[in-house]
Amino acid sequence: MTPTSRYRVQSLQQVQISTSLHHERIMLAPLSHSEATTLAVGLRRCLLKGFEGTCFGTLKIRHSWLTKREKKCYEYLALPGIRETIRDIMMNLSSVVLLGMPIKGKTAVLKIDQKVGVFEARHILLPEGIHCLSPNQTILTVVVPLELELELTIERGSGFRIRDGGEHEEGLLLDARFNPILQVDYQIQKTERRTGFDFNENASRLKKEIISDTLYQKDSHFIKKEQVKNELSKEQSALTFEIYNEQEQDHFYLLLFDIWTNGTIQPIEAMQRAARQAIAVYIPLLRFALTVPSNILVHKQFDSKNKYAKK
């Protein structure tokens, strides 16, 4: 068995909570504790910072009341005939999930022409190449017939951008969450001794534990009930380095990833892309090691030691 053939990956649970919220639990095993820790930290950072996405960037509001009174539009202003404040409208627009890249133009428009009711993301006219994955997201509620137009710019980037509260030529700056990865959690679990490791048996055991594990959303934070308790850190704190080293050699470890996305990418696909990004960092090191003969490195090290000895 080659060193890489013993590692296996399996999806333990895949749930589509809504069109804009996907969750998946992925297991990687068997690993040593140092391997599991290195993979967990590296892949989590790639998942949270290495992806691009599309969302609304700025907002311009055209309202007859603003034009007549020559007032500037700021986020804490309340417009007559609209139940929400401009700040609420901006927060609702930041929650809209977009997929794709604009082909012609980067402007979306929401026009309200003497209508009353609740206007959602599906009422926004998007440019070609852009699709909305959260069509039921409420934008604003009109209680009095009026004429209103919201002009939105579509941007593409990575990470998360927080609005600064100032005025820009393009309009009001929105909170932009470009990264499609909402949250990433990982657990490292210790299994039985190395002599009797069974990948399928551990996978079935974890699937049974997942049945009682419920997921729900509260205030944009994802909370998991009845989480599998990981007491490995408590055990390690009470052990010396020698005992811990012996224990690591006697056991295998499972690495569990819980990934939440906004629906523009599947969690398992995100994991694959993160793995490619991590591998791309090591490829130049491998190529450098292959192009430089080992005897040259030894001679250079020997010469440097002789120079220091002469001094």
Results as ranks from 00 to 15, higher is better:
K207M: 11
I210Q: 14
S204R: 10
E209D: 09
I223H: 09
D219P: 01
E235Y: 09
S237C: 03
K225C: 05
E167K: 10
V184S: 02
E155T: 03
E192A: 01
Q183A: 08
L215V: 08
L172N: 02
Q187F: 04
T191Y: 08
R205V: 02
L182M: 07
E192K: 05
I223G: 03
R194Y: 08
N200I: 08
I211H: 13
N179Y: 07
A203F: 00
L232F: 01
L215R: 04
T214L: 15
E235C: 05
E155M: 07
E201P: 02
Q187N: 04
L174K: 03
E169R: 05
Y186F: 01
P180V: 15
R205G: 02
K234H: 06
E167T: 09
F160V: 07
I162K: 13
E235G: 06
Y216N: 13
E170D: 06
R194T: 11
I162A: 09
F160T: 14
K218V: 15
E231G: 07
N179G: 02
G159P: 00
N200P: 00
R205N: 02
D185Y: 07
D175Y: 01
D219E: 13
G166S: 10
P180E: 14
E209L: 00
H168D: 13
K224L: 15
L182T: 06
Q236M: 04
I211R: 14
D164F: 00
L206F: 08
T195Y: 10
K218N: 14
I211E: 15
G159Q: 05
S158C: 06
S158W: 10
G166N: 08
I162C: 11
R193S: 04
L182I: 12
I188A: 00
L206R: 02
E235M: 05
F199N: 00
I162H: 11
K224M: 11
